[in-house]
Design a protein around this nucleic acid. Sequence first.
DNA 1: TGACTTGCTGTAATCGGAGA
DNA 2: TCTCCGATTACAGCAAGTCA
Length: 370
Amino acid sequence: MKTIVKHQNKLAYAKFDHFHLRELKLFFKLLSLLEENKNIYTYTAKDIKNFIGMKDQTYEKFEILIRSLQKKNIEIFTNSQDSDVYSIFSILKFKRGEKIIEVKYGEDFLPLILDVDKNYCRYNLKYIENMKSKYSILFYIRSKAEYFKGKFTLTKEDFLKFLGKNYSSNNIDKKIIFPMIEEINSLTDLNLKVSKTYEGQKRGRTKVSGYTFQISKKKITLSEAIKKSVKLAKKNIFISKSKVLNDETVERLLEEFSEKKLVDGLLYAYKEINKDFSTLKYLKTVISRAMEPIEVKKEEKENINKDINTPEEKQQTNYPQYSEKEILIYTLKHENLSLDFFETMKRKNKVMYYNTLKVQLKKMQKSQSE
DNA sequence: TGACTTGCTGTAATCGGAGA
DNA sequence: TCTCCGATTACAGCAAGTCA
């Protein structure tokens, strides 16, 4: 499932004070599954239910949560006085029978999550998945939107307005700031530090007037395997010319792919890319392609039966039939060739590929009869 | 004097084990 | 896979003490 959330920065400044923790997680989970050019989205409820930590709870409770989220609006301040209120969903419902969720976003809300060419922020859902405080989620997203500035400052008034609380000044540190900073620093790719600003008083102690949050990104230490695969990938002239592969983009790729998948994907890109390109998006597409499972599709099964065992041959022999996958496994075990080699051959020359498998099949059958 | 800290308590949400 | 229910946790409010 997709795990990257993208939306306009505006959304990071919105008031989510009336959202519960699970409603927030559900909301951002739905955003991560967004695709362009779709009117109504349908999702399997199970995965989403598990993601928001309701694995062991009833679908009735899940439905209550869905209904509650459906009623929510968000408020975005356009200046210190005025704000716009957006209806998030025009449809959000759980279909009990099919156990699916149907989603249609509000027309005015859609640009906030689809127009993400500029002034947008993106982050991996995994960072907020295990957060236990809704404030951690809100401040993490806010920090992502403000990251390019390196810091952001909120007056005490704005701070409380953002959280939708009317706290007396006590408890802010203990109940909001400390737990939130700890969660963000331990669970996410960011480090957040807070410092207070004070205003002088005629009498008594100085008064807290605001909070400044310093944002820095944690340095990811790249493993030797990643370093080697990046070095190898750059030996491909087209990847090298594109200049899209650097420390920063590798970090971004690691947000989307596991280390192993990225290593395999870069190796695949090194072998496969044979034309000029200029975007990271293209490289990601190629890396994703490397992960497509080698499944024996129905069509391929028909091919393999047709090409490897003709009806005549089937009649002539009593040998057992093997799937393409089984023949491949046998070949890789007995010949000094890689899976990549066969995948490439299959793409570029199907006739040669199936002929090769045919030869291997005969070897298999011969070894079975011995 | 009044803002801030600390500690206690109540309420609602969430968790997790047992059993159907 | 689902429900039930007691235990735990997060959030919120209050009051007394501390500090400049």
